[in-house]
Design a protein around this nucleic acid. Structure first.
Lengths: 340, 340
DNA sequence: GTGAAAGCGCTAACAC
DNA sequence: GTGTTAGCGCTTTCAC
């Protein structure tokens, strides 16, 4: 594998000059540049980014910590991050944690060892994980994405959705449609996303004087299976509300499948809406709120990179919230209820 | 940021001894080890993987080249690769190409510069891209995953699905159900996956003496929009076959949406089956063939890592094909046609 | 404009 | 067992 030394030898110049050419330093004579470029080409020389990094203390690599690339929302987040990374010449290390804390800790350790320039964390919980401190200790900037820890320290950034508003927009919509008996499958409260959605839900319900029924609120799980089981439970107990709000797409799919299996029609027998839009909603006419995950991922990466290049004279806001947007399809039966 | 030198100074030993401790060399005395470990702990020392890599010429990083993480099949492939990488202490660089050749070339260049230990390529086409040669020139092993180039050179490996068999299994199944008028939306023939599926289709049709109708075969695109348009075309021309086979999940979703929009019932008016199973099929009762993408991704990573560690006394096969499995749901209406 | 040389943090051969 | 040292491939300061 050719090195700068080889290029220097072949071209007849010194490695310092070769280095200058490679880094586009303007101080090199045209004929030197030309000869060196030619030698590079003939040798098939590729700069060794490892050696460069050792010297520079910059790697042009960024770690991204996610739960599970297979979920549509994480796929969208990752896609956004990768896109913005690519546009700025950063490569991303993909770290899937499966929400396993030990695995996440190990990944952070590895990223520190590999001296990534920054990290984006999408797996934070309300209670801060101690090992994020290692990043700061090692001067590696990081931004939280989607899920937010309880408090943001001075050097910490957050990009996410305005989840409370997402819930409220849904309640506004449902109220307009005349719904009163509303169920909410929300997801675990140690994640900011679900907690905020719950708060927004309560707030919205309260605003219109709508009753919140305990037997119609769940805050334990966010997976497809949970949605399926809760829905089944309601169906079997003959205890269906008018509408079910699902905090996640997976929950909504679970509910949908249970209803399909049991012959419960949507929206005629029970309406359904999801707080987490994705590209498969359309298959089942599911209304939902678009939380803009791809844009969110892009934004987070952009903020991280700005920080790395310090080209942000005007200090960025510490927290950026994207505005959710309602995507209306047929699962809430507005076409049936437009009289309200 | 603490270095080995700091640890050496603090513990009173030399950096060579510190290095020995870090690399678990057994030749260190217990008291030395203990003191050094303590110094490491107090300083919060983390080995610098960059410096180590420069010396070792190994980075424990692997590049994975995919088209679009957002597609369920690539998500599954990536998930499998990441999993196997994690299990063997490799980190993965995620490279999304959007099937843009220039972007792919640039990514390969970057990966070579970063001296990744290996690369997995899921974007190859029938006609080999010249820039894969750069990997070999730089002694970076790589394996092709899912899509296969025309010929495999001596050092090249491939892991994929048995696509021809996937098609044939579908034809077997459809024949059993008594279908005769069969449409096939296949996807572009410069990808091995679609080409093999087409070959398998022809073979299967031929086996049963079934006619292949030109106006019911497409080989141009594999996206959702294409499926939507082709289906619309058939519907509007009043030219529906008995069943539509879709080569990709996206095509099947497109067809499904067109049918839903036009009030064409599945399977009563037209049956539907996909050659590319994923977790959303269930939402629309879509029968499909499971190509086992996650297992495929794992396998590819495992083969690459075996190669890196040379712990494969018994030479691996150059090509590994996973066996596709039929997943039967209602979209082919076997419940209607079981009399056949 | 160009070159010599120090040094980034580590590993490993070799000396003691 | 432990320490000294050369060198991995690059960047950068400082002479010339």
């Amino acid at each position: 594998m050719a090195t700068m030394k080889d290029v220097a030898a072949k071209s007849g110049f010194s490695i310092a000059t070769v280095s200058a050419v490679i880094n586009n330093a303007p101080i090199v004579s045209d004929k030197a540049r030309e000869k060196i470029l030619q030698a590079i080409d003939e040798l098939g020389y590729k700069p060794n980014a490892i050696a460069r990094s050792l010297k520079n203390a910059r790697t042009s690599s960024i770690g991204i910590i996610v739960r599970d690339i297979t979920s549509p929302i994480y796929a969208a987040l990752v896609s956004g991050m990768e896109e913005a990374g690519w546009a700025n010449n950063y490569e991303v290390f993909l770290c899937n944690t499966e929400d396993d804390v030990d695995r996440e800790r190990k990944y952070i350790d590895n990223l520190v060892s590999k001296r990534v320039d920054g990290v984006i964390i999408t797996t934070s919980q309300i209670v801060r994980k101690d090992f994020y401190d290692k990043l700061q200790e090692n001067n590696i900037p990081y931004v939280f994405l989607n899920r937010k820890p309880n408090e943001l320290r001075e050097h910490e950034y957050f990009v996410g959705a305005n989840n409370a508003v997402a819930s409220e927009k849904v309640i506004d919509y449902l109220h307009r449609l005349g719904y009163k008996k509303i169920a909410f499958i929300c997801g675990p409260q140690h994640f900011s996303t679900f907690r905020e959605r719950y708060v927004g839900f309560l707030h919205g319900m309260n605003k219109y004087g709508l009753s919140v029924y305990d037997q119609w609120v769940w805050t334990s799980d966010y997976k497809r299976k949970a949605g399926y089981e809760y829905a089944n439970q309601m169906i079997e107990n003959n205890n269906l509300p008018e509408i079910i709000i699902c905090s996640s797409a997976l929950l909504a799919f679970g509910v949908f499948l249970a209803c399909k299996e049991k012959g419960v029609r949507i929206p005629e027998d029970v309406a359904l809406i999801s707080l987490d839009h994705n590209e498969y909603d359309e298959l089942i006419d599911l209304s939902s709120v678009d939380l803009q995950h791809r844009a969110m991922g892009k934004m987070a990466m952009q903020i991280l990179i700005d920080q790395l290049s310090r080209n942000s004279f005007n200090q960025r806001q510490q927290q950026i919230l994207l505005e959710p947007e309602l995507v209306i399809r047929k699962s809430c039966g507005h076409h049936l209820r437009s009289g309200h």
